[in-house]
Amino acid sequence: MIEVRKIESKKDIKKFVQFQMDLYKDNTYFVPPIIKDELAIFDPDKNQVFKNADCWLFLAYKENKIVGRVAALINHIEIDEQKKSKMRIGWLDMIDDIEVTKALLNEVQKIGQEKQLEFMEGPVGFSNMDKAGLLIKGFEELSTMITWYNHAYYKEHMEQLGYVKATEWVEFKFKTPNPIPDKINRFADIIAQRYRLKSLRFKTTKEILPYVDQMFNLLNKTYSNLVSFVPIQEYQIELYKNKYLPFINPDFVELVVDESGKLVGFTITMPSFSKALQKANGKLFPFGFIHLLRAKKKNTDAAFYLIGIEPEYQGKGVTAMIFRNIIQNFMNYDITNCETNPELEDNLAVQASWKNYDPTLHKRRRTYRKDL
Rank of each mutant, 00 (worst) to 15 (best):
E141H: 10
D22K: 12
E159S: 07
F174S: 00
P181F: 05
I184F: 01
L255N: 06
A40I: 00
F172Q: 08
K243G: 02
K65L: 00
F216Y: 15
L344Q: 05
D97I: 09
Y149D: 02
M145W: 11
C55W: 13
K370C: 05
M158L: 15
K241W: 00
E310S: 09
K131I: 13
I98T: 12
N249Y: 04
E207R: 01
L142F: 00
A295T: 00
V256A: 04
N185G: 14
K297S: 12
E159I: 09
I191C: 06
D258C: 04
Q314T: 06
L59Q: 03
T340I: 04
R369Y: 14
K275G: 02
Y223R: 06
V230C: 11
Q48H: 14
L39Q: 07
L284R: 01
N299K: 06
K10E: 12
P311T: 04
K25E: 15
I95L: 06
Y368K: 05
E118D: 14
E343G: 01
E156M: 12
Q116E: 15
I74M: 07
D37F: 02
K221A: 13
E99C: 12
K84A: 00
V164C: 11
Y313I: 05
K275C: 01
E171C: 14
F266I: 10
K165V: 11
K241E: 10
V124D: 05
N329D: 03
M120I: 14
A152P: 09
I111Y: 00
L348H: 13
M1L: 09
I190V: 14
K84T: 01
K370I: 09
Y368E: 02
E156T: 15
D12I: 07
L239F: 15
D12G: 01
S274W: 03
I232L: 10
F289P: 03
N106G: 14
P250Q: 01
C338L: 12
I290W: 11
D189V: 08
K86P: 03
I184Q: 08
K62Y: 04
V17D: 05
D189S: 15
S228H: 15
E3M: 10
L306Y: 07
L59V: 05
I146R: 02
D334K: 15
D22A: 04
I327T: 09
K36C: 03
S272D: 10
K262P: 03
K51R: 13
P33I: 08
A60R: 09
E78R: 12
Q351F: 05
